[in-house]
Design a protein around this nucleic acid. Structure first.
Lengths: 191, 191
DNA sequence: GTCTATAACTCGATAGAC
DNA sequence: GTCTATCGAGTTATAGAC
């Protein structure tokens, strides 16, 4: 609920009702509402690889296609929720970054975790991308596009902004690959 | 305060204190808290051009540079607020899109307003961009990159993700311009 | 049109029985 | 470890004097 509706908009009473427990039980495990959020963010960090990344990597082998496979899985999330939920972390990133320092740090960790996966794919792509394109920066752009596109899709209640953004990101990557091929053939004359 | 801290996190009492008025005055003009937010969003729509766009357009003439000039002004906002505030609409877009339909519509209007400015620049760029690149889609990508980059800059409390994202967007646009030049010389042989 | 006072309610959190 | 009952503060919004 924090991830979907946001922190402030989610009341403890609502959480208790949904969980079918009483406040005593919740406060036995979590000292405060913020403590509960921190635990949710830890859970989400642990959940990214087994639930989101691994299924994509199991069916896609090409490192660059894997990146777009991950983006595809966020598209699926938008589809299934009628564009009401995209990346759950992005919501909280904006709402909580200046309200709580410890929450901000955990959100950062989630972003870095995500970006690490993408960066590894880009590194695995090796010479298919121009060597003067920083892989870390490119992984930042991929996260940027995902988050910005999800935001617009939610505001529009439509996949169109998401699809348009990802399609142009793909166009960019294709042009990067073409440039890498061209510069490769400069160094090593073909046949 | 809605734009900086979010809707739920901003209390009426806080607004009254900051404004130096009493609740009776506020509720004389605005029926509810949501009504006040809707008025703020209207105000923001009206202020985009005179306060954000016009100053940039006054000092930059090149249509493509104008787009990056606008992005530069969001960078300035991040700098001045120590990366605590970027695009004020993005915050609300995520927080309020599913809480209130009328708020969502006004946020959409703000996005469309912004995107319209960028799209016009891209249309003005004419043949400098490949003709098979949809200008509307590209304006979506520009907004996507701005919002996603601002989100990460806030989470990191650093300009680095913003700068990296915008630099790669510029690299993409440069490659698009190069491609347009190349295809132009195919049609109209040079000299 | 602005004030003070407060209604009506929800919030996060606690106490203590079981 | 979970329950019920409730505290105290904070919330949005209203009433009525001026």
């Amino acid at each position: 609920m924090f991830l979907v509706k946001g922190y402030e908009a989610t009341g403890i009473a609502e959480i208790l009702r949904e969980a079918g427990v009483n406040s005593g039980s919740l406060y036995y495990f979590f000292k405060t509402k913020e403590d509960l959020l921190l635990a949710v963010l830890d859970w989400y960090t642990a959940h990214l690889r087994p639930e989101v990344i691994d299924p994509v990597f199991a069916r896609v082998n090409d490192p660059i296609e894997r990146v777009f496979g991950v983006l595809e899985s966020y598209r699926t999330m938008l589809t299934m929720t009628d564009c009401r939920m995209g990346c759950p972390i992005g919501n909280l990133a904006i709402e909580m970054s200046e309200q709580s320092e410890s929450v901000r740090r955990k959100i950062l960790l989630n972003f870095e975790n995500w970006r690490h996966v993408v960066r590894q794919c880009l590194v695995d792509a090796g010479g298919r991308l121009p060597k003067d394109i920083d892989r870390d920066d490119l992984s930042t752009l991929v996260l940027t596009v995902m988050e910005g596109a999800v935001m617009q899709a939610r505001a529009h209640r439509s996949l169109k902004p998401y699809d348009a953004s990802v399609a142009l990101l793909r166009d960019y990557v294709l042009r990067l690959e073409a440039a890498a091929r061209a510069s490769y053939s400069n160094v090593t004359p073909s046949n």
